[in-house]
Amino acid sequence: MTDVYNINTSPALTFAKLGMNGDRISVNTSLIKKENVEQYIFGNGITDTDDIDEALPGGAAGQDIDRLLSTESRIMTVKGNAGITISFSGSGVIRRVLKVARGVEAEVVEVVKGKAPDIALNSTSYILEKNARLKLIRIQMLDKDTLYVDDLRAKLHEDSYLEVVRLDLGSKRSYIASKVSLEGKNSEYKAHGDYLLNGSQRLDINMIAEHIAPDTVSDMRCDGVLLDSASKIFRGVLDFKSGCKGAKGAENEDVILLSEDVDNQSLPMILCGEEDVEGNHGASVGKISDEIIYYLMTRGFDEEAAVRLIIRSKFNNITSQLKNSDLRDVINRQIDGVLS
């Protein structure tokens, strides 16, 4: 059964003619099989549980995509550091709820790999209880003919802190839908995503930070490099709901374009219904600044080497956060492969 699904519809619409308000995908649901997706958990920081007693946040991918989430959620508790590998071997849907218990401080490294030409759908909800702190590193290195949907949701209780670091390298088309609800007073969310797209890769991002409680803080950054005929759309939303007094939000984008055939679309939005907030967004799009290239050239690098150095250093910011040196090497090799 092939059906068409709306995906990543923008929370606020722009001029319809720009074609930036959302996308649609066709999915053959009969190909989706449970055995096509495996989850491996490393370390003993994560255990299965069955207690979940609160409403889960809605996703940024949209209600249409919710229809694809027919499988049961696996419910887990995060008590400490852990690694998770999710591997696709055909159309698959994985749905998980991870609860970071009160006061727990943890780092979870998730690697998504494998191959699924029709759809690989990874839907994850994180619930951070009071005072919980989670650093989530997600590395996506799916095979280059995969259609990937990454539906990340998080709900932050009082005084909790979520940091999401992500690196998107693989798949042919990917959709990143991320919605973080800052529901507890004083909760904080920081996101830093990097992507490297070449060939005809396309990345479609819909990232929402929803400030509900007072004194909440968000800081979203999404940087990337486009080569060949790659294309990308970034929709980022700071949504200040009435009552989120003292909230602060920032979103930033920095995109480097390295080929004549790329297409880069950006829609960085601020929606504001509260007076006492501070919101900022900034974007810079284009080639690497002449000044930086010149500085590196005065130190002996030719222009091409200077560009490579700058891009490598950009990704170093992410890969240097990985403690697993094997994984770091695999990623660095993949980056070098694209840049050479």
């Binding site: 619409l13 679309q265 950006s266 929606l271 799009v285």
Partner: peptide, 16 residues
């Protein structure tokens, strides 16, 4: 604030 940008020229210099 809903600002849209569609950049198809790679040597553009766009700040927002």
């Amino acid at each position: 604030t809903v600002p849209a940008m569609d950049i198809k020229a790679f040597d553009a210099d766009v700040g927002h």
